[in-house]
Design a protein around this nucleic acid. Structure first.
Lengths: 222, 222
DNA sequence: TATAATTTTTAGATTTGCCTAAAATAATTT
DNA sequence: AAATTATTTTAGGCAAATCTAAAAATTATA
């Protein structure tokens, strides 16, 4: 089934909001979409008719199974395009969102399958968010501290276990933050220090102690 | 100035049609766009208001300078995306058109500038049509017979000078047609024969005699 | 050149997605 | 529990892009 751009935006937004709470309510969706409650109600009727949501008047609504599936398809497209814009076109990752919002509505399955292959079946987008697979499953992401990351494999920083002032200062100095991509070029067994490449910056050295506190997801297919 | 998808489709179509004749008339545009004359008239009013066309009621219309400029911007986007779909995603060139029709309406200048760089500033799309440059100029394409094509440079077949039955049979056998991409891997000076790669097929040998009858445009920036 | 045929435009609906204002329902207070 | 407040829905309208049917202008023909 094909959906309009507007329908897709509603589906995606409901998916976002229902993540936190159980049911979504009209006003919060209206806020989120920068529109009015009346417009939301109009669209809810349409989405109900198309059997994408559970909806009881005045009581809130949520996506049903096929609604969720559709949401994941849209999110997959969005994140693959973001990955493309950052890794292939070198766009800044805080600027890709708006463009991906447009690209995501092009729904050719063949296009997306090929894009996915071309990008190396990435598992996380440049913001550090997981990319659902073709059948709508979110990948199970194993986090590894970077001293356990395979050499030359790109990981995406997911968390840091020490949140001390000193640690933060150092991460800041190296330009490392949640979502940064990191590749280990060389591991020195003598002291556990690592030569790493952070995003597009020149290679640098991290101590073993720092390394074991920085966690990444492996990106791309094994 | 920003235009709607529908406006852009009209602009592009007028550009196509006015190529052949001087003025475009309502019915032929309606035919071309698979719509009704009344819808065309409605849009013409809008395009006139936005100062993109010359239009005298009942007498036909054509793009003015800014209309032409806009058309070329859209065509540029379309052809760059087609190039991307074929060369990067490996799509069949007879299937890319429909998808490029959607991609072309995403109008971020930064996106298109980067896409262009990423693709190597190509001069012709996979159908053999020239790609306008950023300022809307169509590239001046020099045709070269492939025995004058620089080694390892990809050319796009533009014409064949001998149209004999025998020649056609051979071209067919090698899978060479207008729009095919050809790269010369090796030139044997002894007899002028060439080892060439046609599209994604395995390399093969062409006689010097055949080669001098096959003309290509150089693609990509010098 | 008057009439017929064709082309183009206007008039008036329709659909989608949005809006405001008012009515209906639910939740909170007193 | 009744009244007040907040939320949600309905009613009715608007703009964009389309359509059909009818009117107007142009072109062709008898």
């Amino acid at each position: 089934m094909k959906f309009s751009t507007s329908e897709e935006n509603y589906i995606k937004s409901i998916y976002r909001l229902q993540g936190q709470t159980e049911n979504v309510n009209t006003n919060s969706l209206a806020d989120y979409l920068n529109t009015r409650a009346a417009s939301v109600t109009d669209m809810l009727k349409k989405l109900k008719l198309k059997k994408l949501i559970e909806y009881r008047k005045y009581y809130g609504f949520r996506l049903n199974d096929s609604g969720n599936k559709e949401a994941l398809r849209i999110i997959r497209r969005h994140r693959l395009w973001e990955f493309f814009l950052v890794t292939k076109l070198g766009m800044n990752w805080d600027k890709v969102h708006a463009i991906a919002e447009e690209l995501e509505h092009i729904s050719s399955n063949d296009l997306i399958k090929r894009l996915d292959m071309y990008l190396g079946q990435p598992k996380i987008d440049p913001h550090g968010d997981p990319i659902p697979d073709a059948s709508g499953r979110m990948p199970v992401l194993k986090q590894v501290s970077i001293n356990n990351l395979t050499l030359k494999k790109t990981g995406i920083v997911s968390s840091v276990s020490s949140q001390t002032q000193q640690m933060m200062e150092m991460l800041d100095h190296y330009g490392i933050g949640i979502g940064s991509s990191i590749k280990v070029l060389k591991a020195f067994r003598f002291d556990g220090s690592l030569q790493v490449k952070v995003s597009k910056q020149p290679a640098c050295i991290l101590s073993g102690q720092a390394a074991e506190n920085i966690f990444v997801y492996d990106n791309k297919e094994e």
